[in-house]
Every structure is written in C-alpha cells, then in structure tokens.
Simulated scan of single mutants.
Amino acid sequence: MFPVKLLPGAINEITVSVCETKSLTLADRYGLMAAILDESLDEEERRAIDRLLRSTLRGRVKLVDELSVTN
C-alpha cells in the first residue's frame, strides 16, 4: 500500500473553498479522505475536518459531483 501524503495547506484551501461556495466537491472529498488517512495531521486540522463534516451532515454544505465549483 502506498503512503498517503497530504499537500501542505490542503485542509485550509478546502475549508476556504467550502465557505465561499457552500459546496463540497468530489475533489474536496478525496482531499478530506487523504487527510483523514494522514497520521501527521495536527489537532487544528482535525477540528477543521470535523467542522466540515458536521456542516455537511446538518445540510449547511451540499455535496456536488463536480471536480471543482466555479463562480
């Protein structure tokens, strides 16, 4: 199995994108999956992921099947 390596700043970029678009894209979801598998995440990044997931469950963020959302 290949190790999963998250790009630096990826969680922050996903969070900013979701805040602007209120949508979680397919690419964002793959990024979150990679982040969850990354054992080097700090506590702040884990909390940011938790907030994104809670917002999605509460219906504040919608899931879209596009790779990216353009304004």
Rank of each mutant, 00 (worst) to 15 (best):
Y30Q: 11
E66P: 12
T21V: 11
C19H: 15
I49K: 00
I14R: 00
E44L: 02
T70S: 09
R46H: 04
A35V: 08
K62G: 11
N12E: 13
L52G: 01
L41S: 06
I14V: 09
V69M: 11
T25V: 09
K5N: 14
L63I: 14
A27C: 07
P3G: 13
G59L: 02
P8A: 00
L6W: 02
R47W: 04
S40F: 04
G9C: 11
S68G: 13
E66N: 15
E66S: 10
T15W: 05
L53P: 05
S23K: 10
D65C: 10
F2N: 15
D42L: 05
C19V: 15
L26D: 15
E45N: 04
I14A: 03
R54Q: 07
L53D: 15
S55Q: 02
L53S: 06
S40T: 11
L32M: 10
V64N: 03
P3A: 12
I14K: 05
V4C: 08
L6P: 01
N71S: 15
V64E: 09
R54D: 15
N12L: 02
L7D: 08
P3V: 13
E44G: 00
N12F: 08
G31V: 04
V69D: 10
D38R: 02
L32H: 03
E43Q: 02
D65H: 10
L7C: 13
S23G: 12
I36C: 00
T70W: 10
L24A: 07
R46A: 01
R47G: 02
Y30M: 12
E39S: 11
R51H: 13
P3Y: 07
P3L: 07
A48R: 05
I11D: 00
F2P: 09
E20M: 10
E20P: 04
L53H: 11
R51W: 15
S17C: 10
V61A: 03
P3D: 13
I49V: 08
S40A: 09
R47I: 07
M33G: 08
R54A: 14
C19P: 05
L63K: 10
R47Y: 03
G59P: 03
L57I: 13
D38K: 01
D28E: 06
D28F: 02
T21E: 14
R60G: 15
E66C: 14
V69R: 14
K22T: 13
F2M: 13
M1W: 04
R47Q: 07
R47S: 10
Y30V: 08
K5F: 15
K5W: 12
A34E: 15
V64Q: 12
A10S: 09
L41T: 01
L67P: 08
L53Y: 09
L63E: 12
T56P: 00
T21Q: 10
A35D: 05
G9M: 00
R60S: 11
G31M: 02
V69L: 14
A48Y: 03
V18E: 07
G31D: 05
L63N: 09
E45I: 06
L63W: 06
L32T: 04
V64H: 05
T15M: 06
K22Y: 09
V61D: 04
L37M: 08
A48D: 12
R46D: 07
S17H: 05
L24K: 01
S55A: 09
R60P: 13
N12G: 02
L24V: 11
R29V: 15
V64S: 15
S17M: 07
T25F: 00
E43D: 08
N71I: 13
R47N: 06
K5G: 11
S17Q: 07
A48W: 03
T70G: 14
D38H: 01
L6I: 10
